[in-house]
């Protein structure tokens, strides 16, 4: 403690040296930090950038010396479609991601409503308990779900994948909707009730419109998570219902030499996320921390 005090005394006269020197030192520091920040950003973004670039090269160029000088071609994109039927897998991804999200929202909105506005002393426990299922590794339920799907003919169907993704996302969706609903001022609902609105009207005309941004970002997160999911899609689908993740994974193992086509396919798979990146980042953080970071 005394040494710290001494330091303070020793430093005190030096600190206000000259104002302009201090200001320029600060400016310099900010400049260097900015350079560091952007260098790191380049390093982090480089793998994505390189994949996008490779998608526009020919196969020969892709495995030749890495270079940025080449004539861009769209042949990979054309070939990925004509040879492998890319559109089918993309459609599967879209149907499954949006289907499971809608289904999850339909189940979760009433549940979150009841938790937020009609809480009992068990509500908190129920919520945490539902979230706990998210933390368990999916391999623990893989064999039973696989067997069940095989016996009911749901294996390699979009319906089956929609069901699994709905189950997978339900706890997070309920939790996020709950945090959004709880933030809503209660007076508005009270006022609605005074005016004679029933529960259903209250939900449809007051709650849903007012929390639409929250519902939208919850839905967005669920779509992203389903879009990116690969554990279930790899295990439960083969050729018919495979979404893009399963398609890319299958592409990469036996035909590892087609780097340009693989890059093109991957680029298309991440394009929606890259484009909406600025939109999605907040939902990712909020959802993955279970609403802790807003």
């Amino acid at each position: 403690m005394t040494t710290a005090k001494n330091q303070t005394v020793a430093r005190a006269p030096a600190a206000p040296a000259t104002r302009s020197a201090l200001a320029s030192a600060l400016l310099n520091r900010r400049l260097w930090l900015g350079v560091l920040g952007w260098t790191l950003a380049l390093v982090i973004f480089f793998p994505i950038f390189w994949m996008i670039v490779t998608g526009f090269k020919t196969e020969a160029e892709a495995i030749a010396d890495p270079s940025l000088i080449f004539s861009p071609t769209l042949e990979n994109y054309a070939e990925v479609q004509s040879r492998a039927g890319y559109a089918k897998f993309a459609l599967n991804s879209v149907v499954v991601a949006f289907g499971s999200t809608l289904l999850a929202l339909l189940i979760a909105i009433p549940a979150a409503y009841s938790m937020a506005f009609l809480p009992t002393k068990r509500t908190k426990g129920t919520l945490l308990w539902m979230l706990s299922t998210k933390m368990l590794p999916p391999v623990g339920v893989l064999v039973p779900i696989y067997l069940l799907f095989r016996d009911t003919g749901l294996l390699d169907t979009r319906t089956g994948l929609v069901i699994v993704y709905t189950l997978m996302n339900l706890p997070i969706v309920v939790w996020m909707l709950y945090t959004f609903f709880k933030d809503m001022p209660k007076d508005i609902l009270e006022a609605g009730r005074m005016d004679g609105a029933g529960t259903l009207q209250e939900v449809i005309y007051l709650l849903l419109p007012l929390t639409l941004p929250g519902i939208a970002s919850t839905g967005l997160l669920a779509v992203i998570l389903s879009w990116n999911e690969a554990f279930w899609s790899l295990n439960l689908t083969s050729s018919q219902a495979a979404p893009l993740t399963a398609y890319i994974a299958s592409f990469s193992s036996p035909e590892g030499l087609f780097w340009a086509k693989l890059s093109a396919a991957s680029t298309m798979a991440i394009a929606p996320i890259l484009i909406f990146g600025w939109l999605t980042q907040k939902q990712m953080v909020r959802g993955l921390t279970f609403g802790a970071v807003k």
Binding site: I44, M51, A230, S252, L274
Partner: peptide, 24 residues
């Protein structure tokens, strides 16, 4: 913008991450 770029990889599928790094 920096924050968005740093966060980009997290929004990707692990499958895509695997493909990219398999190449690199």
């Amino acid at each position: 913008s920096l924050r968005t770029i740093y966060l980009y990889p997290m929004a990707l599928s692990f499958i895509v991450t695997g493909v990219v790094w398999k190449w690199l």
